[in-house]
Amino acid sequence: MSKDDFPLIGLWGKRSLVFNFALMNIKIRYKGTYLGLFWTALEPLLLFVLLYVVFTGIRTSNKEDFAIYLLIGIILHHTFARGTQGGMMSLRENISILSSINIKRELFPVTTTVTASLLLLVEVAVFLGFMPFVEFIPEATIILLPIVLFLLFFLILGVSYFLSVINAFTRDVQPLWGIIVMALFFITPIFWYIDEASGILLDIHNINPLGQLVEIAHKVIFGEIPHIDDWLYVSAWIFGIFFVGKMVFNKLEKNILEKM
């Protein structure tokens, strides 16, 4: 086993490259737009307005602070969607680099994950700035939110390891993943509450790491300290995906250039 077999460690020496690459990605993403980085905040906010109008329209009894509940879920899901979709394309979009220099291929999914995480920080700042508008004062437990973001980083990276190499072999994963990301929006407690759920939805929720993570985020924002078992359960899922993802990546990455 060399240090390159482990995730991230082999890239430590290239961290400056990763961050510069990630910043360039953000720059390129918003080139040619008038609103630029503002779009990062606008995308989830517009989705939020739409869903808020729809759900407060069809629900008879609204829970308190539904706006805050909804917005954080949208932001976390949106980041997951953006991060994994970027990760999925990360090797394919950089074929020209891969075919002209010998570079650690892990660089690409890591870079897209860092890009998504930087944008997440912008969105979280918007989220915090949004609170006064709905007269919401968070509980002190919100200081645990960074742990949630930290876990989300590893979830996105773990999934990106998988998707990036599989996408190199077959593009079928692209439409499939689009469907899965959409499905995740519905089976994750973003616009519904756990105590409303039952049957198969609850069963699915129990094995959905993104759903577990969103639930923890809700708890810390609304003043509840999640039980240690909740943390351990979601961490086991996420780091399981992360390490298995890297193992699959290591196994498949050698021949990807010839397959693309």
């Binding site: 080139k31 680099i97 002209s100 220099i101």
Partner: peptide, 14 residues
């Protein structure tokens, strides 16, 4: 140093 493509990592938007 390989110089195999025209501009490794060059991006048209930059």
């Amino acid at each position: 140093a390989p110089l195999l493509n025209i501009g490794t990592g060059f991006n048209a938007e930059l």
